[in-house]
Amino acid sequence: MSGAAATAGVLVPARRHASLHRQRAWALWGSYAALGVFVIMFLVPPFYMVMTSLKSPAEISGQAGNPWFVHHPTLQNFIDLFMMRDFRGFFLNSAMITTVTVSVSMVISVLAAFGLARMGFKGSQTLATGVFLTYLIPNSLLFIPLFQIIGALGLINNVRALALIYPTLAVPFCTWIMMGISARSPASWMKRH
């Protein structure tokens, strides 16, 4: 390094710093603006959903006036929904299935991911690829054989069947994500065991 370069190194950053600062501010506000535009675009359908949920059936079937706003807002739809005896059952079912699916998928994929990524054994790489490839068979095609299996297990028309099906569909992808995480977890963790 020559002295000249060193002097330049001291002088230039001062000027550059100011412009960089301005540039950063612009970039920041530009990012906010662009994100704002995307958020508005992304939220149009949910907004419309909320609006529609506040309309009465008569207002919807009337097909008149500005569809983007509610002219006679009503909470009747929500009241009806919560008063529906079945709905509570559906809601509980959903909550239960979700809980089971998440916990089962987590346990299976964390275990497998750790095994595949950190304690690699012969062929673990091929197996990991194979796990991913299960997605190549469209779900829609799995339902007939799945029905057979569920039938053989005596779980037809049983909510519990879903607790078996949903994790199956979720686990391969979870495993892949978890493999990344466990590969990066501190190696010292291993040594303690």
Partner: peptide, 11 residues
């Protein structure tokens, strides 16, 4: 509209 609800058969 009922989402998951549809997949649960009334019995």
């Amino acid at each position: 509209k009922l989402g998951v609800a549809a997949s649960v058969l009334p019995l």
